[in-house]
Write a protein that binds this DNA or RNA. Sequence first.
DNA 1: GTCTATACCCAGATAGAC
DNA 2: GTCTATCTGGGTATAGAC
Lengths: 246, 246
Amino acid sequence: MSEKSQAGRKKSVAKKPLLQKENSVPESVLSARVRNSKPREISGESKRDKLEADILQHAVKMFAECGYEGTSIASIAEQVGVSKQNLLYYFASKQILYQRVLDDVLDAWLDRMNSLADETQEPVDLLRSYIQAKLRFSREQPWGSRVYAMEVIGGAKIYGEDIRKKVIPLLRKDIATFEKWIKQGKIAVVNPTHLLFAIWAMTQSYADFSTQMTLVLNRKKLSGKDFDEAEKLIVEMVLAAVSIKT
Amino acid sequence: MSEKSQAGRKKSVAKKPLLQKENSVPESVLSARVRNSKPREISGESKRDKLEADILQHAVKMFAECGYEGTSIASIAEQVGVSKQNLLYYFASKQILYQRVLDDVLDAWLDRMNSLADETQEPVDLLRSYIQAKLRFSREQPWGSRVYAMEVIGGAKIYGEDIRKKVIPLLRKDIATFEKWIKQGKIAVVNPTHLLFAIWAMTQSYADFSTQMTLVLNRKKLSGKDFDEAEKLIVEMVLAAVSIKT
DNA sequence: GTCTATACCCAGATAGAC
DNA sequence: GTCTATCTGGGTATAGAC
């Protein structure tokens, strides 16, 4: 009862007619922009789009650093340079902003992972590409990784349904691919589920636990060399696990 | 500036003369108990100890589920069955309670890991024991793991100094052990730092990401069998990485 | 779309009686 | 040690003028 009241106490979801999703799909309904009859520059983004992107960019960093409850919309607004009332004009509530942040994270993520569904590639190349892609994501979008990680660790109270719908099927598909390889004798007999968990854990940790890693390594941030060495070891371990000699 | 004010804005640390640490070291100053002249049962814990333990037990779960800012001391108090004012009598502030929770987590952790510093053991046995111990911790104290993980992911704003002092030296020592083995030719030439990161990531994830794992596996919680299979794969991968045939 | 003002609630923490 | 009462601040969100 008290746990319930901790999170998800918002009942109002979307009251204002705002776009909540349209980053990678420019052909989606352009309600607000269509209403705007004033001629605008064609190539550039509209002001609304630019501000939305700005807000999202700062929001993902702050949610990653302070968590959902630990981040106030006022502090995000301050970073962006707008009033918090104005921010609430673009994103009707904190929870909507948060969900949009996670939506964008997953979109970027799944985009990168989808390209690996190529059935024609051999296990060695596919595994290597997979690990590289996930490591690159940890490197280039660490904040997104961290927001996602914190949401999952806390039990995915807000975003759980989306994870179930968007992430889990993808993981299951990856596992099925491993199983197919095993059946075909292309890789050794290993537990495909736990192999995937291992790959995810190792790659993800270079975003989530980079604070601890930099302390161990005694440097300010992880370098390209660190990621290269990480990739080398992880690929080695995974290929060794599936008994593929390089 | 606004980020700073997000966390760690507490200036008052410990105003009341309360014990803040005495779980594993019973010979520490017994200020409150000594003042209490009434004869008490010798074997059992004092009421204060019992209540403190109760509070900590519930606190670690709630911090794990909702994060630091997301957890109110009122909700913890409610779970324990005391008033929040009373809780504040035992732990002078939320931050002190939080730090104590993390202290206890690390104590239990380091306890388990210290026993592995046995120099007489061979790499195979030591690595296997290490992985087993960390996996057992993930299984038996998932909340502690998660609180720690969230703290690290968020940049360790509150507990960073303790991590630097308590955890990092231990990790460095483990890395040094790996390096020694490599020099002695006992294991293959691998990057010892990233090998340790990999072991930590894989074992830790069975606490931190168990929500996602149970969704993939389609069950309510991870079973003993899951942990056995995880152990088997992780040990295999690590031993393969250091080129030890079993 | 942006502003001022404000409603409303809940949090952490303290004071002081018992 | 536990209670009632309260202070103080911050948070999300809304109303309404411009």
